[in-house]
Simulated scan of single mutants.
Amino acid sequence: MWPLLRACRPDAALHAGISTLIPDPAGLGRAVVQARYALAGARTTAPGAAGPEASAVTAVDDLSTLESLLAGVPHDVRAAYLSSTLGPLLGESRASHGVLLETLEVFLGHNGSWARTAKALQLHVNTVHYRIRRVEALTGRDLSRLDHKLDLRAALLCR
């Protein structure tokens, strides 16, 4: 079916969302909600791309990561969450805040490992400790807590 749709609109971005299979008509409402959410995820698969290269099909079963889950959240909601969670670090008035965001992203990407973060950023481990303490102070989050790590990771994915 996709080639037929593409033939009708060769220059347009096409998106589709697919729900799980439903055993009976009673699950149709839930399936429609799932398909809409998957469609929202498909629409954010290639942000900034235009035309056919922005086309995507997403099944609700593909929404198995935090990133894919957040893809279906409306842009305004993601922007509000980003601002409330990382707000003090988002101001472009201080170049050091960009460095702190980078350190936070690498730190979370290395599962909170001080040594691996220091190695990846080519820094002394004490510098990583200092930067993460600054992130904690500016955001009010404690990165020794899993829920706070998840909050900050989700906010970074909302950028």
Rank of each mutant, 00 (worst) to 15 (best):
R78G: 08
R36P: 00
T117L: 07
L121N: 11
P25L: 08
A31P: 07
V128A: 05
A12F: 00
T45N: 01
R133E: 07
M1S: 13
G87T: 04
A154Y: 08
S68C: 01
G29I: 03
V33M: 11
V73S: 06
G87I: 03
P88K: 02
E136V: 01
L108C: 05
L89H: 05
H124W: 01
D151P: 00
T85A: 15
L156N: 11
T117N: 09
S19A: 15
A13C: 01
S113E: 04
A40P: 02
P3A: 09
C8H: 11
S96Q: 14
A13D: 02
A35K: 12
T20Y: 10
S96R: 13
V73A: 11
S84C: 08
E53G: 04
H148F: 04
T85K: 08
R134G: 00
P74S: 08
L123C: 06
L150Y: 05
Y81L: 14
R9M: 07
G48M: 02
W2L: 13
A42Y: 12
T20K: 10
K149R: 15
G17F: 13
K119N: 11
L123P: 01
G48Y: 04
P23D: 14
G98S: 11
G27K: 07
S64A: 15
R43P: 03
G17V: 09
L121Q: 13
A50K: 07
T20L: 14
H110W: 04
L90G: 05
R116Q: 15
S55C: 14
S84F: 06
V99Q: 12
A13P: 03
V77P: 05
I132S: 04
D151T: 07
R78M: 06
R159D: 12
Y81M: 13
S19M: 10
G112M: 02
L100S: 03
R30S: 11
A31L: 07
V125A: 10
T44Y: 11
V125Q: 14
G140A: 01
A38N: 09
K149D: 00
G27V: 00
C8Q: 14
R131T: 01
P88W: 03
A49H: 14
L69M: 12
L39V: 11
G27W: 07
G112C: 03
H97R: 15
G98F: 10
D76T: 12
S83Q: 15
Q34K: 05
Y37G: 06
L66S: 09
L66N: 07
Q122F: 03
N111C: 01
V106S: 08
P52E: 14
L14V: 04
G29K: 13
D147V: 03
R43N: 04
L108F: 08
A115P: 01
L101Y: 09
R43F: 04
A31N: 09
N126D: 15
L121H: 12
G29F: 02
L138M: 10
P88A: 09
G41Y: 08
D11P: 00
L86R: 06
L152G: 10
A42V: 12
R6V: 13
L150E: 11
R141M: 04
R153P: 00
R131D: 02
L156E: 13
S113T: 06
M1N: 05
A79R: 15
R159C: 11
S19D: 11
T85R: 13
P3Y: 07
A46V: 05
W2T: 04
